[in-house]
Write a protein that binds this DNA or RNA. Structure first.
Lengths: 170, 170
DNA sequence: GAGTTTATGTCAGTCTTGTTGACATTCCAA
DNA sequence: TTGGAATGTCAACAAGACTGACATAAACTC
């Protein structure tokens, strides 16, 4: 399966970074880094008897206020039943508000309440703090490379969703 | 909480990459990319009625053959009960072999059987294929940055575990 | 040698988060 | 008006994490 076992240079460009060993290191780095990535919000969520699913919902509702359930479903990649359970608790706890659509009354538009926005900030701040430290350590060029590889690693449909979100504010 | 809202240049070095907006894009990229990262092995595992937990165990047993249960526990960051459930099924299915230690007979040393190694290859190949495509797209400099940021994002103890694994083969 | 610690395994119960399948309601559109 | 889309809800279930309790064997310590 390995296209490149040794590390020859083609056309003057080294392909050392494409060896199985390099790829494996990347895979393991991704695994350990993702744990760090979620560790800080997880601690906050545990206090409140919420989980990562709640965080994800809150994050993307904050990101795109007024988004519909269907829209959120597509971004999160879970079933409506699974999302619905999470949304129900968030609505019951007064963190999320669900408004019937004016144009299409079948749709529910989702918004964070003040309390919801407060929790979102708390979670974001924790997650950003680690991200900021990592970015600072690695430097701007590393960050550009980081983003480039991550984007190339996404499924095509998620790359679209990501680009849409990315360009909507920046 | 935001240290930097605007994007001033300090000492001639732009810190544009440390804005909250940039950090949020990084967070979302990480979320979507991780889904892609696990998508291919997940499909294979689903066929076999296994989950990601099985993949992780198989991966690290292959990576460090003869590792003890305790060692694996530390790397995976789960409880022994959780890991034990997974190991039991893998041993029962003939993918993993557990050998009593010769020096310390309390320890169990874990190895992949031929069948286990075969599955490991299948899973690795799938995951590496995507990784290789992403690396190729992004180029060697981006890959270096990617690795740098991921490493900075890990918890300190995992950075140690990762470095140990990383340097043991390369 | 007795007592403690360590490594492992196991049982029982709980929680979150995902899944399917079935079904009802509402409303838009052909 | 009929069909389909969007949403919500109920029920059942499974993976994979958790805690707590307990058992066993081996190793270590005093």
């Amino acid at each position: 399966m390995s296209e490149i076992r040794t590390a020859p240079a083609f056309g003057g460009e080294s392909l050392l970074f494409l060896t199985d060993e390099q790829l494996r290191q990347g895979i393991e780095a991704m695994f350990f880094a993702y744990r760090g990535f979620t560790a800080d919000p997880d601690r906050i969520l545990a206090e409140l008897a919420y989980g990562r699913a709640h965080h994800r919902a809150i994050h993307f509702i904050n990101r795109a206020p007024g988004t519909t359930v269907n829209n959120l479903l597509a971004i999160l990649g879970v079933t409506k039943q699974s999302l619905n359970r999470v949304l129900r608790t968030l609505i019951a706890d007064g963190l999320v508000e669900s408004r019937v659509g004016t144009v299409d009354k079948r749709e529910r538009h989702l918004f964070l309440t003040e309390a919801g926005a407060a929790l979102e900030s708390r979670l974001s701040d924790a997650q950003r703090a680690r991200m900021r430290a990592a970015y600072k350590d690695a430097g701007p060029e590393a960050v550009a490379g980081f983003r480039k590889v991550l984007e190339a690693m996404m499924d095509a449909d998620m790359r679209g969703a990501y680009a849409k979100l990315r360009d909507s504010t920046s």
